[in-house]
């Protein structure tokens, strides 16, 4: 081979091989998958949610929060497995590569309370004491009193500024609008089947912890499962708003300690609130800004019974406990 031929063969050949592979492995999959049709119920964002997504990107939220629920048992707490059609309007993609904080694919369902999102963004430790998330105080303003049409964020006194009140800026409102828009629509039956198959392929032999166990398995002999205990499920699902010690957040989330519904001897109302959620009801003459999500679709009868039992017997509460059968009855609309 000639002098120049050698150089052309090495540099040109290597370049050409790579160009072909880049098209095959990068460009063509990229083009094909970009045409993925939106899944049922997946809709474009509103302009405000779109602006909130831009805040999410600018502040680098996806360096700690994923938006991909894997078909693995441990991911069930975050929602159903993500499907290709979920991302039709999600550009730039925000799947993320690290989960230092929880996955947010379905956070609008899991944590629908606007006021919780504001408190948490202003100072995450105000509602989740062990959290290491940064405080996003620059998305808020401290003013002497809330201007007309604005609502002050109901911060616990220990986390509030010494004087004045905290109100969200337009960027914070947009960001929260975006977060609350993150709701996974139900999968079509075929997609559900595909997701289940993928999950079974990866599932270990024993049923996974935290999974919505079928009522038939309730009587089956099984070892102690910490994940299924009331205190654990309470910490995972309820403590962010009602507090690890059931004390709530004044003005935002009611306390559970000595609450008349939680300590009533008839558990029906308590179960109904957990199953269906609650919003806008004054408790003991106090109004609360928070919105409680419905857990009927997120937790099994066994899990709800465990949580409710914990709430009825912890922190000095002494109320009769419930069984999964009680939950099933209230779920069906009985009392």
């Amino acid at each position: 081979m000639s002098r120049d031929g050698r150089l052309v063969a090495i540099a040109g050949g290597a370049g050409l091989v790579y160009l072909v592979l880049a098209i095959l492995m990068g460009v063509l999959p990229g083009m094909a998958l970009s045409k993925t049709a939106p899944g049922p119920g997946v809709t474009p964002l509103t302009p405000e949610q779109e602006a909130g997504r831009a805040v999410y990107v600018a502040e680098g939220c996806s360096y700690c929060h994923t938006q991909q629920v894997r078909p693995l048992a441990m991911d069930k707490v975050f929602g159903r497995p993500s499907a290709a059609g979920d991302y039709a309007y999600a550009t730039p993609e925000l799947l993320g590569s690290e989960r230092t904080g929880p996955d947010l694919s379905n956070v609008g369902v899991r944590q629908p309370a606007e006021v919780w999102q504001y408190i948490h963004l202003y100072d995450p430790r105000a509602v989740v004491p062990p959290s290491i998330m940064p405080s996003y105080r620059w998305l808020f303003r401290v003013v002497p009193s809330a201007p007309p049409g604005e609502t002050a964020v109901a911060l616990p006194p220990a986390y509030a500024p010494k004087s004045g009140v905290v109100v969200p800026t337009a960027r914070a409102k947009a960001l929260v609008a975006y977060l609350l828009s993150l709701k996974q629509p139900a999968l079509s039956p075929e997609m559900q089947k595909a997701a289940q198959e993928a999950e079974q392929a990866m599932a270990p032999a024993k049923p996974a912890a935290g999974q919505a166990a079928a009522p038939a398995s309730a009587g089956a002999a099984k070892g102690f499962d910490y994940a299924a205990t009331g205190p654990n499920l309470y910490a995972a699902n309820c403590a962010a708003c009602h507090g690890a010690q059931g004390t709530g957040v004044a003005g935002a989330f009611p306390p559970l300690v000595n609450d008349p519904v939680v300590t009533a001897s008839d558990p029906a109302e308590h179960l109904k609130v957990v199953l269906d959620g609650l919003h806008g009801k004054a408790i003991g003459g106090t109004a609360y800004g928070g919105q409680m999500p419905a857990f009927a679709s997120q937790l099994s009868d066994e899990q709800i019974a465990a949580i409710v039992d914990h709430e009825r017997t912890a922190w000095g509460n002494h109320a009769p406990t419930v069984t999964p059968a009680d939950v099933a009855r209230v779920r069906k609309g009985g009392r």
Binding site: L33, S34, K35, T36, Y87, A88
Partner: peptide, 18 residues
């Protein structure tokens, strides 16, 4: 221009490793 949603995810996987 050709990267949208999941398509961008495919390109990102290709890019970040390469």
């Amino acid at each position: 221009w050709y990267q949208n949603g999941l398509g961008q995810v495919a390109v990102q996987g290709f890019f970040m490793h390469n």
